[in-house]
């Protein structure tokens, strides 16, 4: 198993963090991982992305030409990366900020991650709703390991932050994955 994932969105939407949480949860599950960020002059409001590889074997290039999965949080990122999804690949799309009419041979999961996050009370956790969606759709990462990573990352004693991220992940997992 080797899963190549491009995660993209607007600077400020937490796409780097989404990738870091994903790879650390995969690490806890005994997987090999690489995480490779866009490191140009990315700014809040522009596009930003990271490339994540999760595998049972040693990983060669951390750079991804054709991805197995795209996790896309806004429209400019969709335009930039939609051609990078391989045939039969999975597109996880934030329908609050972008829409995509079905293309042949792609699996598409569109949900309003931003709206779901706002309903939870914090727009910043839209990234973790998307992560939950990925975790449930691909089943290569144990959601319990994601919770472990939350615990290790959250500021000590800030249970509110931990709880809302936990809720966001759960909301994402519970979306209908067809």
């Amino acid at each position: 198993m080797t899963e190549r994932i491009i995660i993209a969105g607007s600077g400020g939407q937490g796409v780097m963090l989404l990738g870091k949480v994903l790879v650390q949860a995969a690490m806890l599950g005994g997987k090999q991982i690489t995480w490779f960020p866009a490191y140009g002059p990315e700014v809040r409001g522009g596009t930003s992305h990271c490339m994540v590889v999760v595998s049972d074997q040693e990983i060669g290039s951390p750079y991804i030409g054709q991805a197995d999965t795209l996790i896309i949080l806004n429209r400019p990122s969709l335009e930039k990366f939609k051609s990078r999804l391989k045939a039969g690949g999975l597109l996880i799309l934030n329908s609050s900020l972008a829409g995509f009419k079905g293309a042949k041979g792609l699996k598409i999961l569109q949900f309003p991650f931003t709206d779901i996050a706002m309903n939870l009370g914090n727009i910043k956790v839209a990234n973790m709703v998307a992560l939950g969606c990925f975790v449930a759709a691909k089943k290569i990462i144990d959601p319990d390991n994601v919770l472990e990573v939350f615990k290790s990352m959250a500021p000590a004693g800030n249970l509110k932050i931990l709880e809302i991220n936990r809720q966001a992940l759960k909301e994402g997992e519970n979306l209908n994955h067809g």
Partner: peptide, 10 residues
């Protein structure tokens, strides 16, 4: 190189 510097691994 830039890949090695930027990439994260365990």
């Amino acid at each position: 190189d830039g890949v090695l510097g930027q990439m994260m691994e365990p």
